[in-house]
Lab assay of single mutants.
Amino acid sequence: EDGINLEEIREFAKNFKIRRLSLGLTQTQVGQALTATEGPAYSQSAICRFEKLDITPKSAQKLKPVLEKWLNEAELRNQEGQQNLMEFVG
């Protein structure tokens, strides 16, 4: 629908959760960090719904690039050390 690749979103949601957990981050931490930079659309409950795919494809499509960018950045910081990650997450 609307050129939205559901399979891709499903895959990303699954990987997002795995990668988030491997960084040792909670949904709350991700939500707080993103709410600070991106606004309330990225709250803990939004992250939770995204991971469960309990949102419309359109919403998922909107969240995905922001979550992807944030997660990549978080992983980079983590490679530089846990301290850097925690500063990034705030």
Rank of each mutant, 00 (worst) to 15 (best):
Q29K: 02
M86A: 12
Q27A: 11
T35L: 11
I4S: 12
S43P: 06
E11L: 09
E8D: 09
R19S: 03
F12S: 05
V30R: 02
A36V: 07
T28C: 12
K64F: 10
P40F: 07
R19V: 00
Q83Y: 11
E75D: 07
F50S: 04
T26N: 05
P57Y: 08
A36L: 07
Q79M: 09
L25W: 11
K64H: 01
L25Q: 05
D2Y: 14
L6Q: 12
L85Q: 15
E8V: 02
I47N: 01
R10Y: 10
N72A: 12
P57E: 15
S59G: 11
R19Y: 00
N84T: 09
K52L: 04
T56V: 06
E38K: 09
D2F: 12
F12E: 04
N84G: 10
Q61I: 13
G31V: 11
G24N: 06
L71E: 07
S59C: 12
F50K: 02
G24T: 01
A46I: 11
F50P: 05
D54P: 01
T35Q: 11
L25P: 01
L23G: 03
E68K: 03
R10W: 06
L85M: 15
S22W: 08
L21I: 14
A33E: 11
L67A: 05
P57N: 09
L6R: 06
I55G: 05
T35Y: 07
Y42A: 05
F88H: 13
G3A: 11
V66W: 00
A41F: 05
L21G: 05
T56D: 15
A33Y: 12
Q82R: 15
A13T: 03
A60F: 09
A41T: 08
G39H: 00
I55N: 01
G24F: 01
N84A: 15
E7N: 03
K58C: 09
F50T: 02
L85D: 15
I4V: 01
E38G: 07
R20Q: 00
P57D: 10
G24R: 01
E73P: 02
L85V: 10
T28G: 14
Y42D: 02
R20W: 00
E80F: 11
F12V: 02
E73C: 02
G31K: 04
I9L: 10
F12A: 03
Q83C: 09
F50N: 12
L53V: 07
P57C: 06
P65V: 11
F50D: 09
W70G: 05
E75A: 04
L85H: 13
G31H: 07
I18C: 14
S45M: 13
Y42S: 03
E11Y: 02
V30F: 05
N15V: 05
M86L: 12
G3V: 10
P57W: 07
E8R: 04
K52I: 04
C48P: 01
R77E: 09
A46C: 08
Q61M: 14
E68I: 02
Q29E: 10
F12R: 00
L71K: 02
N72M: 09
N78E: 13
L21M: 14
Q29Y: 06
P40I: 08
E73Q: 06
L76M: 11
S43F: 06
N84I: 02
K69Q: 15
Y42Q: 02
G90Q: 08
I47Y: 07
T37P: 03
R10M: 09
L76Y: 09
K17V: 02
V89G: 13
N15R: 11
E8F: 03
P40G: 07
G81M: 04
L25H: 03
K64I: 15
L23C: 03
E7R: 06
N84D: 12
S43A: 07
K58H: 09
L85P: 11
N78A: 15
Q79T: 10
L23P: 03
A33R: 04
L76I: 14
F16R: 01
Q44P: 15
R10A: 12
A13S: 05
R19G: 04
E11H: 06
F16W: 04
G81E: 08
L23N: 08
N84M: 11
Q29I: 00
L76R: 14
L34V: 06
Q29C: 05
Q83G: 12
E75Y: 04
L67H: 00
L34W: 00
M86D: 14
S22L: 10
Q27E: 15
N15Y: 11
R77K: 14
D2N: 15
L85C: 14
N5F: 12
A36N: 09
L6H: 11
L21N: 13
E73V: 05
W70D: 09
G39L: 01
G24C: 00
R49G: 07
R10V: 11
Q27M: 12
R77W: 05
S45W: 02
T26P: 00
R20Y: 04
F88N: 10
P57F: 09
E73G: 05
Q83D: 15
K17M: 08
N5T: 12
W70V: 04
K62I: 15
G90N: 13
K58S: 13
L63D: 09
L71I: 15
Q29F: 00
G81Y: 06
I18K: 14
A60M: 07
S59V: 14
E11Q: 08
R49Q: 13
N72Y: 12
N5V: 09
V89L: 11
K62N: 04
E38H: 15
L21C: 09
V66Q: 05
S45I: 01
N15S: 14
V30Q: 02
E7P: 01
R49S: 14
Q29H: 09
N78K: 09
K52E: 14
R77S: 05
A74L: 05
T37Q: 14
A74K: 03
E51I: 00
A46P: 08
R10F: 11
G24V: 02
L67R: 03
D2V: 04
V89S: 11
G3C: 14
I55R: 03
E51C: 00
I18G: 07
Q44R: 13
N5I: 14
K69D: 07
L71R: 04
Q82G: 12
E11R: 05
W70K: 07
I47S: 00
T28Y: 13
L53F: 14
L23W: 05
F88E: 15
E11T: 05
C48M: 12
K14S: 07
P57H: 08
Q61C: 11
E75K: 01
P40A: 10
Y42I: 12
E7L: 04
D2S: 11
K58I: 08
T56R: 06
G3P: 08
N72W: 11
K17P: 01
T56L: 06
T56G: 08
R10G: 06
E68C: 01
G39Y: 04
N84Y: 06
L76H: 09
A60E: 03
Q27S: 11
E68G: 02
N5Q: 10
E8K: 04
E51M: 01
L25F: 08
N78P: 05
I4A: 04
G39M: 01
T28F: 14
L21H: 09
T37A: 13
A13F: 04
Q29G: 03
A33N: 01
V89I: 14
G90V: 02
S43N: 07
Q44V: 14
A36R: 14
S43K: 09
K52M: 05
L63G: 04
T37R: 14
L63W: 04
R19H: 02
S22T: 10
L67I: 00
E68W: 02
T35E: 15
E7T: 01
D2T: 14
P57G: 11
L76D: 07
P40E: 12
N72E: 12
A74M: 11
N5W: 09
S45E: 15
F50C: 00
K17G: 03
M86K: 13
E75R: 00
L63Q: 15
A60Q: 00
P65E: 10
S59R: 13
G81S: 12
L85N: 06
I55F: 15
V89A: 13
